[in-house]
């Protein structure tokens, strides 16, 4: 379910963000091709992508909201709900799994106060999720904190990592 938006909608694509989009549009022969970058811009600005945002993106790129939603829901990195100020993605696929990734997850849940996967901590600061392969298997366990890619995280290193983002 999407969060209810009661306030009047403030468009994302104005000023600098609109300029960014216009530059991106020059890279592709179709407007539709700018959809993924446009969604990244929305998420960058708003932290997640609401149904209303999808309507706006559709208007800007000449796509229906349903089409945009179909694409948003395909790609797991687009947030369809608000997330914590720090969004933590922990790889638990096999190669990291055998190196103790599930213990890293437990440590992160404990130290951030997020308590369970996908839930945001009561202070709104942390959301921790398990993700499939982050593509850094030789550096188990890789953790993506927002846009920071942290290699070789162990349960022991978790407290220090959490402190850094507090």
């Amino acid at each position: 379910m999407s969060a209810v938006e009661t306030q009047e909608y403030a468009p994302v694509f104005t000023g600098k963000t609109l300029e960014r989009l216009q530059e991106i549009l020059t890279r592709y022969p179709t407007k539709q091709a700018a959809l993924l970058p446009a969604l990244w811009l929305v998420q960058g600005e708003r932290g997640w992508i609401s149904d209303r945002n999808m309507v706006e993106v559709g208007e800007v790129l000449g796509l229906t909201p349903a089409y945009v939603k179909g694409v948003v829901t395909f790609y797991t990195m687009y947030h369809q709900h608000p997330v914590g100020a720090n969004f933590v993605q922990v790889c638990t696929t096999s190669p990291c799994n055998i190196c103790g990734a599930e213990d890293v997850v437990k440590a992160l849940l404990a130290h951030t106060g997020a308590k369970e996967l996908g839930a945001t901590s009561p202070d709104g600061q942390w959301t921790v999720i398990e993700v499939e392969c982050l593509g850094a298997c030789g550096f188990a366990t890789p953790v993506l904190v927002n846009d920071d890619f942290v290699e070789s995280v162990t349960p022991e290193r978790v407290p220090e990592l959490v402190r850094k983002y507090k």
Partner: peptide, 10 residues
């Protein structure tokens, strides 16, 4: 010509 329905999720 009016894609109001989609395949959602995967």
């Amino acid at each position: 010509g009016e894609p109001v329905i989609n395949v959602s999720e995967r």
